[in-house]
Simulated scan of single mutants.
Amino acid sequence: MASPATAIVVVVITIFIPPLGVFLIAGCGADLLINICLTLLGFLPGHLHAFYLEYVYYDRQDKARAGGITAQNRAPGVYSQNIQTGGHTDYGTVPVQGA
């Protein structure tokens, strides 16, 4: 669970450098690449995308603690599994193919 201070630091970083804020919550992946492209197109699209990802991430952290995260309720436009689960991981589980 991230502390409120951590969330504030990530938001402040995102205000100045949106791709860095996305990297801190999503890591290196499709969401980061999309945010870099949107930031290059204009600073506002990069900010909107980054703040949307952060909203989903922190909202999902609360839902994960309550047990409300399922594979069926994925956030649209979010490709990072870390953001989809709010940073909550199930270590030791193996996904079943075709189930």
Rank of each mutant, 00 (worst) to 15 (best):
D59M: 02
T89Y: 14
T39G: 07
A5T: 04
L41E: 01
F43W: 15
A7N: 01
A50Y: 09
L53N: 13
I83V: 15
G27A: 15
V12T: 10
Y55Q: 02
P95M: 03
A30P: 02
I13G: 07
H49K: 01
G46P: 03
A7V: 13
I8L: 12
G67A: 06
N35G: 13
A2G: 01
F43N: 02
A2I: 00
Y55M: 05
D62V: 05
Q72D: 08
I13D: 01
V22R: 15
D90N: 03
P4S: 11
A5H: 02
A7D: 00
L24K: 15
S3Q: 09
P45Q: 05
Q97W: 10
T85Q: 14
D90Q: 11
H47C: 07
T6R: 14
N82S: 13
H88G: 02
V9F: 13
I83N: 13
Q81L: 05
I25W: 13
P4T: 06
P95K: 03
T70W: 05
V11W: 12
S80W: 13
N82L: 07
A71I: 01
T14I: 04
Y79D: 12
V94M: 12
F43S: 08
G92C: 09
V11C: 01
M1P: 04
V11A: 15
E54F: 10
A64K: 02
I25K: 15
L48M: 09
G67Y: 07
D31E: 13
G68L: 12
P76I: 06
P76D: 10
G68K: 12
T70E: 02
T85K: 14
P19I: 12
H88T: 01
L38M: 05
P95V: 07
E54S: 08
G98P: 00
Y52E: 03
T93E: 10
R60Q: 15
G86S: 11
G77T: 06
I83Y: 14
R65Y: 08
A2S: 14
L24Y: 07
I15E: 00
A26P: 14
D59H: 14
A30H: 12
L53V: 06
A71V: 00
G21D: 10
F43I: 15
H47F: 01
Q84K: 07
F23V: 04
Y79K: 12
P19S: 04
Y58L: 11
I15P: 00
G27L: 15
Y55R: 04
V11S: 09
L41Q: 03
L48N: 00
L38D: 04
N73I: 04
R65D: 04
M1F: 09
P4V: 11
Y91R: 10
T70A: 04
I36R: 05
A66V: 09
V10H: 04
N73L: 04
G67D: 05
D62S: 13
V12R: 03
G98Q: 03
A66F: 08
M1Y: 07
I36D: 06
G92F: 11
I83S: 07
P76R: 14
G77P: 05
G29M: 13
T93P: 00
G46T: 06
V96Q: 05
G87A: 09
